[in-house]
Design a protein around this nucleic acid. Sequence first.
DNA 1: GAAATTAAAGCAACAGTGTTTAGTTATGGC
DNA 2: GCCATAACTAAACACTGTTGCTTTAATTTC
Lengths: 346, 346
Amino acid sequence: MPNLRFLRGYNDAVVLGLARSGAVTRVDLAERSGLTPQAVSKVVGRLIGEGLLVESGTRNVGVGKPRTLLKLVADSRLALGAQVERDELRVVLTDLAGDVLDRAVAPLPPDFDPPTFVAELTRLVNGMRDDKLLGVGLGFVGPLDHRTGVIHDATGLVKWHDVPLRELAEDSLALPVVLDKDTNTAIVAEAWRRGEQLRDAVLVLVGTGLGVGLLLDGQVYRGARTNAGEFGHTTIQLDGPPCVCGRTGCIEAVHNLAARSGDLAGATSIVGLAVADLVQLLDVDHVVLAGRAVLAEPEAYLAGVRAKLPTDDWLPVEVEVTPLGDDVVAAGAAMLVLSEFYGRPR
Amino acid sequence: MPNLRFLRGYNDAVVLGLARSGAVTRVDLAERSGLTPQAVSKVVGRLIGEGLLVESGTRNVGVGKPRTLLKLVADSRLALGAQVERDELRVVLTDLAGDVLDRAVAPLPPDFDPPTFVAELTRLVNGMRDDKLLGVGLGFVGPLDHRTGVIHDATGLVKWHDVPLRELAEDSLALPVVLDKDTNTAIVAEAWRRGEQLRDAVLVLVGTGLGVGLLLDGQVYRGARTNAGEFGHTTIQLDGPPCVCGRTGCIEAVHNLAARSGDLAGATSIVGLAVADLVQLLDVDHVVLAGRAVLAEPEAYLAGVRAKLPTDDWLPVEVEVTPLGDDVVAAGAAMLVLSEFYGRPR
DNA sequence: GAAATTAAAGCAACAGTGTTTAGTTATGGC
DNA sequence: GCCATAACTAAACACTGTTGCTTTAATTTC
């Protein structure tokens, strides 16, 4: 696969990624990308030609010709992303910068089947069509196969076994479609928006279940079969309370038991302990919290997690609640589309 | 960084990696690498020129000109690797195929200091010098920094704080030196030897401590600060037995308690449970067991782990004990050197 | 057993990457 | 107003993998 086209795509993506984090100059880009100034000029020329960047004034840094500022043309490309939950479908429109421009939410009937879902998705998408649209991303509950776009056996949805959802959606929408686990699209959202700052991070999604999205060495890690991130069923209490999964003492079971009995401190403390273990295992330096439970009590979860993290000053870990709120999963699905077109090729 | 040199290095490494797994033909290489036959011819030509490959006969596959077999010249390049433990230094010589050609073991005095260690290392290395030697790899207990080559604060070694070991060793040995955590060198050994077969794997090292080496998407994952793989201090039993780390109910504490009281089944079952959780979290399809405890009772640990793994037939996980035995860490350190020269650039 | 067919591998010309070299342009300082 | 400085770029370049065609060596066919 690695050939000249790959190389160009890669460097274009590097430069575009740096430009995404704000106004930059060619000199900045050269320093931060490791490319020579001449190479940067060529890449920038290409990107300007495609309408992805524009020159926007100059910045003076002492004697000599001032540096030309470059700005991302955020609205030059758009993407749609959808989050699919048991009872609700959320569709979000984002621009190239990863900012949410529009959203639509619709209820889904109990135990909806694939045709019903595709029809509803098509309805919402048609309400947000745009010439600049690159495609549609879908953030679904797993297990599913990201590469083939097949839902394997969605947890909690009885009518979803081995459904080739990407194909079905592409046929109905006449747009490129990508499918991924909700936790993965959520971490994509954070990674796309924060760029180079975020290389090793976990996104913890606390809802009815407990999943994580993993960003490792700057890449979303999906595992051998798109099944990575099943965090909720890690044992944290030998002989603990029974879990829906059939085992006992899973993080999810212990957490939900505390949460349902109104013990918020206990619930956040369990999540904190589990996240601290995860941070220790993976040595990530960023933790992002998301999901309905977290957004209902953001301060409590933040405190619960921070309290348990190691305090070594050479291993600082930054913890935050996702700034995208309820939109993370859907917005991340849209950014997954953007990254297919303008992210680093793999 | 990505430029033409990178591209060449990458494709050379891909081809060399495929050739490492046995005799191949140019046609095989083209199919399995995705490169065009012409590109493969050029790459193979380069590698033959460097003495890394040789043609070795032909294989007939029907009509037409027979395919030319290509073989790795395993002994064209060599590397040394060392494993450093509290009481012992082990140095191993490996060839390009990752096979162990020679080894030397020497005791280390209690609480040895860096100069003592470097002197002993130099003595053993000098006994195994060779013109084809590319460098020396060191597998050490963490925490340490792989990139700078500095031992941060080796667990159990009181005289090792912020020691620039790579520099010290390079000065003394006059050879390139790389430093990494023992768990990381161990997984490098498995990855180098099994090539493309192994993309997502964990190596579990069970000794006095319990660490894991992570191979994710075909790359060794070290974390933001070379500290990934601290698996032993994951909580598995809320309010469990106290651990040396100051917390309670760590996998390591529970395991060691069982092991010391002679409860082998209990010990292996805890490791099995913990590994199953890890497999679920990371969706790896290979688990390799290693370390003194495992090698003392290989069948028991294999059974203990296999018993706890999920049985879904679409998520098969292969479990095995490392075929390299006590040499894994040292041999992996040597292969880390090989991969610096002939592995995929990052 | 000679000619035709098939498939591997190599040669030569090529398109396109980032790099090197040598300018050109725009600013601040004197 | 001139000069030094720094940003930027045009042209030539080295080297990548690709394309199109030829050579080589085997099997198949008549």
